[in-house]
């Protein structure tokens, strides 16, 4: 890998972290490209540990980490390009939202005027302008989440690490926040988020990292990961006018392992071991007048990946 490639990636090389005898994460090797990356896994799977390792709040027991070529043990350089909004819902006592962002921003070496301007801009981006000069202690949970996010984005970082950033946000703010993540990612930055809300992860992520018991069980783009799981046939839902005819034709394909007709007779669920061959075959079948209305994959989402790889304990959340 050339230097140019390394410098825009977050690279973890065989990283392990133990808390005494308790495993945090084990033998994690990742090379995370820019974009929105979601860390998904049940409680205790190592998501927060991984974020803490990337930002230097904890140190690896083994292995090495580079964030855009910078070691997390060098905060002086790292936090000029990186920001981390932790899950901790606590703030320095007695501060207003504005003071909170301004004070820590000043430590980055910005002038008073620049800090004032940047702070106001960051607070505006999370729509907290009206509450900027109120004490954080009086903020609602959603406002506290937003002020943390504002602090994280204030110095315009290239790497944004966010632990459960959507918790406590109402649907409107949630949508605005996701739009902000997309904006960041579209500019070629890293947005690393952890979340329990799988359908949201599905919607926002460019890639996912699935963790279980401290191990990375899968990583990459959701579809790519799904395609590699050959032990779980791909599921495709087809809505059509002549479902029973299509079902019999589809079942003639040797890679199709199961076909189920919908109760209303207007569609079917197909399980296939080779999605590409199936879609090619379906193109031919469509020409035979079976009246296909829609075709949609049923299980190439994070929820299914989670269920297949980790188990169903939290997949419904």
């Amino acid at each position: 890998m050339s230097n140019g490639q390394v410098s825009d990636r977050i690279v973890l090389d065989n990283v392990s972290r133990f808390y005494g005898e308790v495993l945090g994460v084990n033998r994690v090797t990742l090379s995370v490209p820019p974009g929105i990356t979601s860390l998904v896994g049940p409680n205790g799977s190592g998501k927060t540990t991984l974020m803490n390792l990337i930002t230097g709040l904890v140190r690896p027991t083994r292995g090495s980490i580079q964030v855009l070529g910078i070691s997390p043990s060098d905060p002086e350089k790292l936090f000029r390009v990186c920001a981390y909004a932790t899950q901790f819902d606590s703030f320095p006592r007695g501060m207003t939202g504005f003071q909170f962002i301004y004070s820590y921003l000043r430590l980055s070496g910005m002038s008073h005027d620049d800090c004032q301007r940047t702070t106001a801009f960051a607070i505006g981006r999370v729509n907290l302008g009206d509450a900027a000069h109120r004490k954080i202690a009086g903020y609602s949970k959603g406002m506290r989440q937003r002020i943390k996010l504002a602090q994280a984005i204030a110095h315009d970082p290239r790497v944004l690490v966010l632990d459960e950033p959507l918790n406590g946000l109402d649907p409107l703010v949630r949508a605005e926040t996701i739009a902000l993540f997309r904006e960041f990612a579209a500019e070629g930055r890293h947005v690393i988020v952890s979340s329990h809300i799988l359908h949201e992860v599905d919607t926002i992520s460019d890639q996912v990292i699935l963790l279980s018991n401290g191990y990375v069980v899968a990583e990459g783009q959701i579809r790519g990961v799904r395609e590699e799981m050959s032990e779980h046939p791909m599921q495709v839902i087809i809505r059509c006018t002549r479902a029973s005819v299509l079902a019999s034709r589809v079942f003639e394909q040797d890679h199709v392992v199961e076909v189920r007709l919908h109760a209303d007779g207007g569609g079917l669920l197909v399980k296939t071991r080779d999605a590409d061959r199936f879609y090619r075959a379906l193109n031919h079948l469509a020409l035979d007048g079976v009246g296909i209305e829609s075709v949609a994959p049923a299980d190439d989402n994070v929820n299914s990946l989670y269920e297949y790889l980790i188990g169903g304990e939290e997949s419904t959340r």
Binding site: L57, P75, E76, L78, F79, F88, P92, S108
Partner: peptide
Amino acid sequence: GEMLDKSLHFYLLTPIRR
């Protein structure tokens, strides 16, 4: 005190040498 208040990390996440 800041560890007990869970607010020390704000310092550790700024570009300042420990």
